Computed example of a mutant assay.
Amino acid sequence: MSDIARPRYIPVLLLDRHRRLVKTVAFGERTYIGDPFNVIRLFNEKEVDELCILDIDAGRDGYEIDHGFVAELAGECFMPLAYGGGLRDVRQCAPLARNGVEKFVVGAGATDAALIDALASVYGSSSVVACVDHRDGRAFVDGGQHDTGLSPLDLAQAAVAAGAGEVILQSIERDGARTGMDLAMIAKVADEIPVPLIALGGAGEVAHLAESIEAGAAAGASGSTFSFIGRLRAVLVTYPEDLTDSAGGGL
């Protein structure tokens, strides 16, 4: 597990095929959150230090990255930006990098050692983030549709060995539930990989993010914590001040 100075707390925004921001439940039911540009501007005002945007339909639908649209998003973003969705070839990343994307998130690409190696060779391992989605002790790709035949730990270790500098570990079952994260799996994987682990899936409040850090994650990430308020899941894009305070003035 990597030793870092302080934890990070990362809002994760999900884009659908219509360029809308949505929040999913167990990778299924979707709630409309808002226009991505407006939400990014709100996070700018909150002085969020890092943002992750994932196109959740690109991999399943197979459409190409709209580099013009991503450039517009990055142009509105005053913090480091990670982007994922449909990344299958290192050549796709050159225009992303030119337009301000600092980290590349690979989902199905996490199973492609050659792709990860190529990305790390060009952009450095610190720019390559492997997203490991898991359910029932198995790692899945393509929005949870295809079983890789690997455990989450096995896939995370393979991605790191290929050159990934960070791993997002996402629980499919807990996605959108807002009841807490899979702390046992977080602890298990974080203890066995030499790079930072970003915990995602299940957080609904600040305490859940803090618990993921205590379990061994280097960063706690969430969509729901920064998008909903209250039992009825009213949409309210926010970034609680106590996250900034707990990180010593930043993420």
Score class of each variant (00 low, 15 high):
65 I>C: 02
117 D>E: 15
79 M>G: 06
165 G>A: 06
238 T>H: 08
168 I>M: 14
64 E>H: 10
178 R>H: 00
81 L>P: 05
157 Q>A: 14
181 M>Q: 13
86 G>Y: 04
93 C>D: 02
186 I>P: 09
38 N>A: 15
231 R>N: 12
248 G>T: 02
247 A>D: 11
214 E>G: 05
199 A>K: 10
53 I>G: 11
92 Q>F: 04
115 L>R: 00
210 A>K: 05
27 F>E: 01
87 L>M: 02
76 E>P: 07
221 A>G: 10
199 A>P: 11
217 A>E: 07
147 D>T: 06
4 I>L: 13
44 N>V: 07
211 E>S: 12
112 D>F: 03
223 G>E: 00
77 C>A: 10
65 I>Q: 04
40 I>M: 05
57 D>I: 03
35 D>E: 14
247 A>H: 12
44 N>A: 04
6 R>G: 08
201 G>W: 06
251 L>I: 07
58 A>S: 12
161 A>R: 14
149 G>S: 10
119 L>T: 02
10 I>C: 09
3 D>G: 07
176 G>T: 01
177 A>Q: 13
215 A>I: 10
28 G>I: 00
249 G>C: 07
247 A>C: 15
124 G>P: 04
99 N>V: 00
143 G>P: 11
210 A>E: 06
112 D>Y: 03
147 D>C: 06
177 A>T: 15
195 V>S: 14
119 L>D: 08
243 L>S: 06
50 E>W: 13
46 K>A: 15
67 H>Q: 05
54 L>K: 02
26 A>D: 11
72 E>T: 14
133 D>N: 09
115 L>C: 10
16 D>L: 05
130 A>T: 11
94 A>F: 15
81 L>T: 01
40 I>K: 08
133 D>V: 08
33 I>R: 09
220 G>V: 02
164 A>G: 01
171 S>Q: 11
185 M>R: 00
168 I>C: 09
110 A>I: 03
187 A>F: 07
78 F>S: 01
67 H>G: 10
225 T>Y: 06
98 R>N: 09
153 L>Y: 13
251 L>K: 07
51 L>Q: 07
64 E>W: 08
172 I>P: 02
247 A>F: 14
149 G>V: 10
178 R>E: 05
108 A>Y: 03
35 D>W: 12
52 C>L: 15
107 G>S: 14
158 A>F: 01
58 A>H: 02
72 E>R: 15
152 P>N: 05
48 V>Q: 07
19 R>D: 12
131 C>Y: 02
198 I>K: 05
120 A>K: 01
226 F>C: 03
140 F>N: 06
89 D>K: 10
236 L>D: 11
207 A>E: 14
45 E>P: 04
20 R>Y: 01
33 I>L: 15
38 N>Y: 11
211 E>Q: 08
95 P>K: 03
206 V>Y: 02
113 A>K: 12
86 G>C: 00
185 M>G: 02
222 S>H: 09
201 G>I: 05
111 T>L: 08
40 I>R: 10
208 H>L: 07
22 V>Y: 04
128 V>Y: 04
166 E>F: 01
33 I>W: 05
62 G>A: 13
46 K>I: 00
110 A>Y: 02
6 R>F: 12
152 P>D: 14
155 L>T: 01
99 N>M: 00
168 I>S: 06
243 L>E: 04
127 S>W: 03
205 E>T: 06
223 G>R: 03
46 K>N: 10
198 I>N: 09
228 F>L: 08
15 L>W: 09
15 L>P: 12
88 R>W: 10
